[in-house]
């Protein structure tokens, strides 16, 4: 199971010295069904990472509620694994050690079973032969594979991915997107991917929740029913991309939006 319900969630940060508050999220609601792949799409600074932090339990929402299978989220937990943009691997642990970490915090798994799970996940992300390497000896793409394996090893109900491929070069990003699609197909988990790339969202997701610029509100909740694998030059892909681009650009044309549009190829 892994049904995630985000219900009218708001988050406000106290301002600096001026006392002006920053409204990061305002009345955000959406549902991610069990085994569904959902993408949270929006400009940088629209609060999508804040939302992911709330779902992960790192922070508490100011209003509204987040539940996983009906259980309110109050703190970080094993059932909601997180893959970070900067990988957040333990640099002193080997590839194996990192993947084993989440299993060792649960006392009840026997050592043999533990090793079997570790080996299985090393194979799943294609890192056989690198078991004893330390993270600094790996490339960015390989580190993110370790992070994904580590998150999956504890058998979570939801995998939360915070712009996991943003630090990779274009080639590796495409490769890792395919990898993630493959892993999702074989593991069938509920996935929530935070991204600012329209293409990434369309390539991977069943559902795309488009967030508006600050304060983050749900702009549109799109169900993607294009056949997989999805090609960027198919008619459906192009049409959806144009639609989302317009959604993201159809915002108050302040200077920031113009800048963002030129930084991220949305226009």
């Amino acid at each position: 199971m892994g049904t995630l319900i985000v219900d009218r969630v708001g988050k406000t940060y106290p301002g600096n010295k001026t006392g002006e508050q920053t409204v990061a999220l305002d009345g955000v609601s959406f549902t991610v069904a069990d085994n569904e792949f959902c993408a949270l799409l929006g400009h940088s600074g629209c609060g999508k990472t804040t939302l992911l932090n709330l779902i992960a339990g790192f922070e508490q929402p100011g209003s509204g509620s987040i539940t996983l299978d009906g259980v309110p989220v109050r703190r970080p937990g094993r059932e909601r694994a997180v893959v970070f943009q900067d990988y957040a691997l333990f640099p002193w642990l080997t590839v194996e050690g990192n993947i084993r970490f989440g299993l060792e915090t649960q006392g009840r798994i026997a050592a043999g079973e533990r090793q079997r799970i570790v080996d299985e996940h090393i194979r799943l992300v294609g890192l056989a032969g690198f078991e004893r390497h330390l993270p600094h000896q790996l490339s960015g793409g390989m580190r993110q594979r370790v992070a994904i394996a580590r998150a999956l090893a504890t058998d979570p109900q939801v995998l939360l991915l915070d712009e996991p491929f943003a630090a990779l070069d274009a080639q590796n990003r495409l490769l890792m997107q395919d990898e993630l699609a493959r892993i999702w197909a074989s593991e069938t988990k509920t996935m929530l991917l935070v991204t600012h790339s329209i293409e990434e969202a369309i390539r991977l997701a069943d559902r795309i929740v488009v967030l508006s610029r600050r304060p983050g509100r749900v702009r549109e909740n799109i169900v993607v029913d294009l056949p997989r694998p999805r090609h960027e030059d198919s008619a459906g892909f192009i049409a959806l991309r144009r639609h989302i681009r317009n959604l993201l650009n159809d915002e108050p044309a302040d200077q920031l939006a113009v800048e963002a549009a030129s930084v991220f190829p949305l226009a």
């Binding site: 094993r78 997180v82 333990f90 970490f101 989440g102 915090t105 580590r150 998150a151």
Partner: peptide, 29 residues
């Protein structure tokens, strides 16, 4: 220590004691 290292450990189900002995101590070493 990087916040995300602690958060990663929390998400992996580590208890406070686990985090202190196996993440904080190691990362600060």
């Amino acid at each position: 220590i990087e916040t995300n290292l602690i958060r990663a450990a929390q998400s992996l189900g580590a208890s406070q004691w686990h985090i202190l002995t196996r993440v904080v101590l190691r990362a600060a070493l």
